[in-house]
Structures are given as structure tokens and as C-alpha cells.
Computed example of a mutant assay.
Amino acid sequence: MKIYRLATSLLFSSLLAGCAVNLPFNNRLNYTSIKQLAEIPKTQEAIVIKWNPNTFPQRIDVQGADSFVGSATRTRIPTGVALSNRIEEALSQFVKLTQKGTPLTITVDNARSGFEYSAATFNAPAIDVANVTFTATFEYKEEKWTKTFVSNLKDPKIGGSSQTGLLDSAWDDIAVQVAKDIANHINK
């Protein structure tokens, strides 16, 4: 009888606690994105990136899926880690990143990674809709500008073709957009 009560208590408490999903995210640009950045003319500019807030490159959001009601599932989404790594890698394709460079301050006004995923009995959780928004204010030399970057992707395959590939692609898309925008201001 004690074992039955213990098992019931354990089951009930685990249902209340929900579960956390840890997905295998990649924090590097894919080959296609790097190839797109090859079109940007290289410059002799040397810059140092200063993030505001300075904790953004370590930011991990714990959130549920968009448009999914009734679930206690929370997923760790490395929005700050993924975007900052990709943006820095994208910029390094055409400028020199060094601590002695001219400061490029990126003030993050809004960074959100929305997603929907499918999970069923016979397949692993897979992100099949990714919506990423990144709004930032940039300061370089005497210039200051604010811009919003958006990427909305949907996997046509039911069940998703990859656990994290679609969100990784959306972050890549944002990094390429940011790099091209910064290049337009640096290469004037």
C-alpha cells in the first residue's frame, strides 16, 4: 500500500512540475549563410563589438511553444547565445574583430525566438515553425541607427525535418540581415 501511495505521489508531482525539453541547438552559421556573406566587400576596418546589455551573449530563454495551449512543457531557447555568436561570426566575414578596434555598440531592444513544434508518439520533438524578431540600436563612430530584423520560416514537412534546424536557420537569416545592414553603414 505504501508503494502504491508513493508511486501515485511521484506521478502526481511530476505532472505538476511539467517537463523541460533540451534540444541540440547549433550556435554557428551554416555554409549557405557564409556563402551569402561572401558577397559583401571585405574592408580594412577593425571593430570591437560591445553588447548592451553585456549579458545578452549568455541569454537563454525558458519558454513554451507559440500557439500551444495547455502544456507545461518549457524549452530552453538560447536566443542571446545563438544570435550573438552568429552575428559576430557574420561580421568577421568582412571586418577584422579585435579588442583594439573601433567600438560597434549593439543595444538589444528586443530579441524573441518564437517556435512551434510537433511531438508525437513515434517522432521526436521537432521545430516546424520558427519566428525570430531582433530589434537593435547600433552605434558606430558618429552614426546611430535602429532597425528591426524578422525571419519567419515554416517547414512544409509534417513532424519537422530536424529537431532544431528551422530555428537555427531563422537565427542564421537574422545574422545575415544584421551583417548586411552593418556593412552598408561601414562601407559608405
Rank of each mutant, 00 (worst) to 15 (best):
F94E: 02
S169F: 08
D172I: 07
S84Y: 00
A170S: 09
N54D: 14
Q58K: 10
F138M: 15
I174F: 01
K141N: 15
D128A: 04
L29W: 11
L37H: 05
A126K: 13
L29Q: 00
L104Q: 04
A65Q: 03
N123C: 09
G159L: 14
A136D: 01
N27A: 02
E142C: 04
I40N: 02
F122R: 13
A72V: 05
L23C: 05
I186L: 12
D173V: 09
T137Q: 11
S9G: 14
Y117K: 01
A170N: 05
F134N: 04
T8S: 00
L104F: 06
K188S: 00
G18F: 04
F138Q: 03
N184T: 10
I87W: 00
K50F: 12
A20G: 13
E39V: 04
P41L: 10
W145A: 04
F68P: 06
T55A: 13
R5C: 04
E39C: 01
Q36L: 14
E139L: 07
R112Q: 10
G165I: 02
A119V: 06
T55I: 07
G18R: 04
S9E: 15
L16R: 10
A126R: 01
S169C: 05
D173A: 14
K100V: 15
K100N: 08
D172T: 08
N152P: 14
I60Q: 07
S162P: 03
V176A: 03
R76T: 00
Q177S: 15
K147V: 12
E45S: 05
N27T: 11
T43Q: 10
S162N: 08
T8D: 12
T133A: 10
L10C: 12
